[in-house]
Simulated assay, not measured.
Amino acid sequence: MTEGPAVPLDRPVLDAIAALAALDGEGPVLVASDFDGVLAPLVDDPSASRPTPGASAALTRLAALPPGRARTALVSGRNLAALAELSSPPAGVLLVGSHGAERGAVLGSGAVETLPFALEPDQADALRAVSDGLEAIAGPVDGAWVEHKPSAAVLHTRRCSPEDARRSVEAAVELGASLPVHTMQGKDVVEIAVVETSKGQAIDALRAELGAVAVVYLGDDVTDERAFAVLHEGDLGIKVGPGETVARVRVSTTDDAAEVLAVLAEHLER
């Protein structure tokens, strides 16, 4: 006997899921989601982030579907290694790290197969300048720290006081403007990348590679708006939490997001 939904979903969400599951096309439904703030609650220590039990269970169900019916992907700003370690995804899940700069897939053994990635010499020089500059900004600020990725560096200010966070963010944005790089702001982060990527570009690439008939995307951050913006009329964008969005529907919490994935899995299993 299975338990009922922990969180009731609004009718627009349920109707949209039912319409997607009823599609009869030549390709799978791509179910893609951000990790932090969607599958895993936001926490002050990023290394402590873990998916909720409901999200893990739903991902396992989705990943077990025939590849012609559905494909599942995690699309995150985290680097690929951290995303794989913290999310513990089941076999078959596609992984997109660093906002699309890194790609991989979870194999049946649980290992992650990664696509080759390398920077050009000028990009490597720019990344060193970005990393050194952000470390100089974060060094004297209590609670600020810098995350280093293969193609970017990220200033984190979640643990800072509001005033320290404001000044640090302003300094990071100024640093980005002074270099041939790409700056993105999210929740308590400023990411400066030397490769132009976005979650929207990643979704477009996955759609084309898989021949997906439709895309479901769940996100909570400003950077997820780029993914919502590339969705087609028959797709479904789901914003998790508050904030302006171009997504079609909204749910409130990570528990809601897990329930969305569970209901979607139930429909796709039919």
Rank of each mutant, 00 (worst) to 15 (best):
L94M: 13
A202N: 05
E209I: 13
T60V: 10
A21W: 05
V195L: 00
H232W: 14
V195K: 01
I137D: 09
G186N: 07
M184H: 13
R207Q: 02
E209R: 15
D255G: 11
L155I: 10
L155Q: 09
R71F: 00
E266S: 15
G133F: 03
D44R: 11
G237C: 10
R69D: 00
A136Y: 04
P12V: 09
T60I: 08
T2Q: 15
V251G: 05
L127T: 05
A55F: 00
A81W: 10
N79W: 11
D15S: 12
P116Q: 14
G77D: 07
P90S: 09
D36P: 00
A91C: 11
L210P: 09
F35H: 03
G37K: 02
F35V: 03
I137C: 09
G110H: 12
A262L: 15
G237K: 14
L119W: 07
V216F: 06
V216Q: 07
V189E: 13
V189Y: 13
A214T: 04
A21S: 09
L23E: 13
R103T: 14
V249K: 15
P242S: 00
V173F: 02
S76C: 00
L65I: 07
A101S: 12
L20V: 06
L218W: 07
S88K: 10
S87H: 00
D36F: 00
F117G: 04
L59M: 09
A138E: 03
A257Q: 07
L20H: 05
D24S: 13
V263A: 15
K199Q: 01
H182N: 07
G54V: 14
E26Q: 11
A64F: 03
A16L: 12
H182T: 08
P28A: 01
L236W: 07
M1I: 14
A153V: 04
E3C: 15
A144H: 10
G27R: 02
G237S: 13
P51L: 01
S178L: 07
S161H: 08
A82G: 09
V38I: 08
S76M: 00
E170I: 07
G108S: 07
R103M: 08
A40Q: 03
R11H: 11
A58L: 03
G211D: 04
A48E: 15
E163H: 15
F35C: 03
A258N: 05
V189W: 13
E26A: 12
E26G: 13
S168Q: 14
G25C: 02
F117V: 08
